[in-house]
């Protein structure tokens, strides 16, 4: 299990590096698509089945198509003839390396204690740790539990999210349609 997690994480990191380093936006978009599909595998490994399905359907299926359409709408000539990075890119690289080094060191040397759990849960976790697996959240099936919580405890955020999506779609159409 831990081998699979390491493999998937290394691949996600590689594809993310490709997203910010490749020259052409289509290369970046396809790298991000591969990274998102691997991220769905990562979510599966951490016991979030429903989120993994949503990740594939919405991100890999919907949002990436939007970005590829954006690439289609814009010109591709200046990509061939000019630099794709600012002059400040080296400064940004140094800044990010320092940022990553400092806080990555802090995160690596932090403790992540599990909270006090009930006895049955602790037994499940102990058992899966003994078998070198991650503790799964499979007391019930995951999509059922997530959707029951979504439609009971989180019903107001859910409705607000629908309003947000409507506003975003109307705003996007307005911005793209506006005559200049």
């Amino acid at each position: 299990m831990i081998v699979l997690i390491v493999l998937v994480s290394v691949l996600i990191a590689l594809f993310s590096i490709m997203v910010v380093s490749l020259k052409h936006p289509i290369s970046s978009a396809i790298s991000l698509l591969a990274g998102f599909l691997l991220l769905a595998v990562f979510y599966l490994l951490y016991g979030a089945e429903f989120v993994a399905a949503v990740q594939v359907l919405v991100y890999a299926g919907g949002i990436m198509v939007l970005y590829l359409m954006g690439v289609m709408f814009t010109d591709n000539e200046w990509i061939k003839i000019t630099r794709q990075t600012h002059l400040q890119a080296w400064l940004a690289l140094v800044l990010i390396l320092v940022f990553f080094g400092y806080f990555g060191h802090k995160l690596y040397h932090s403790e992540y204690p599990a909270p006090a759990m009930q006895k049955a849960q602790t037994a499940v976790v102990k058992k899966s740790e003994a078998e070198n697996k991650l503790p799964y959240l499979n007391r019930e099936t995951n999509p059922r539990t997530v959707s029951v919580r979504l439609f009971s405890d989180y019903i107001y955020p859910f409705e607000v999210a629908s309003v947000l999506l409507t506003v975003a779609v109307v705003g996007g159409v307005f911005l793209a349609k506006k005559e200049v």
């Binding site: 997203v19 910010v20 954006g70 690439v71 814009t74 990509i79 630099r83 990075t85 600012h86 400040q88």
Partner: peptide, 10 residues
């Protein structure tokens, strides 16, 4: 990427 790239899609 946010700081360094010039293409809005990226």
């Amino acid at each position: 990427g946010l700081l360094a790239r010039r293409n809005m899609i990226t």
